[in-house]
Amino acid sequence: MKLQSIVLAALLSTAFGGAMAENYTSPVIALVGDDAGSWTKGFETNHTVGLFTDTWTFQYGGVAAEATGFIKNLQNTKSNIDFYSATLNGVALDISNLGKKSEIEFFDLPVNGKLTLVLTGETFGTGASYAGTIDVTSAVPEPTTYGMLMGGLGVMAFLARRRKQA
């Protein structure tokens, strides 16, 4: 009889005990790029009350670059989000949960083409939402670098021609 009570209590607690918000998995989101080797995109979602795990996938041009970004909850007097973990391509990100202000920031993380951002947390009150942005910047050489490269190639061509004539 005691075992039946324990099993029944376990079933009821899993069925009704823990509120679970919906998890979100984004489709692959293309970052918007410019001619200077920079890509960016904003994103947002909202949740009902409970635990959640969100997975965001971003894609850009694919060259080696660095990612910078932030995620913040959109707070109000009736709801809140606490972030429990955050990773970008498996690298743990810094989280700050201070009252109704929760945020995640990251700077200059090396990336290469595809980015996977995984956030876990919990919403309280009547549900809550968060928004963020991600920026990817590649190392684009300065125009003077191209000038020096062309000058060096010119000197090498001159020396090769001189040796050939001698």
Rank of each mutant, 00 (worst) to 15 (best):
K72W: 10
G121Q: 07
M148K: 10
T123D: 06
K101L: 08
E142T: 00
A131M: 09
G50K: 03
V91G: 00
V155R: 00
G99S: 02
L153Y: 03
P110S: 09
G151T: 13
L153Q: 01
I29D: 13
A19W: 10
S102Q: 03
Y146Q: 03
G62M: 07
K72Y: 14
M156L: 14
K2I: 10
G127H: 07
F52A: 04
I71F: 04
R162L: 11
A160W: 10
A36D: 14
L159K: 02
T145G: 06
M150A: 14
G127K: 05
S5M: 11
G62A: 08
V136I: 03
G42F: 05
K2Q: 14
L31A: 05
F158H: 01
N89S: 03
G90V: 03
A157E: 01
E142C: 00
A21C: 01
K100L: 10
L153M: 12
A92Q: 11
A15N: 06
Q75A: 11
G33M: 11
Q4A: 11
Q75W: 13
K114W: 08
A160T: 15
M1A: 08
Y146E: 04
A92E: 15
N97T: 04
L74F: 00
A160R: 09
L51C: 07
A86R: 05
V118I: 15
F16R: 01
G147T: 04
N76E: 05
G37W: 09
G154D: 07
P141G: 02
I95S: 07
K41Y: 12
F124K: 14
G17N: 08
A36W: 06
T14K: 01
I104W: 07
T116G: 01
A10V: 05
N23A: 06
D35R: 00
A9E: 14
V155C: 02
S79W: 05
T77E: 15
E44H: 15
T126C: 00
S129R: 07
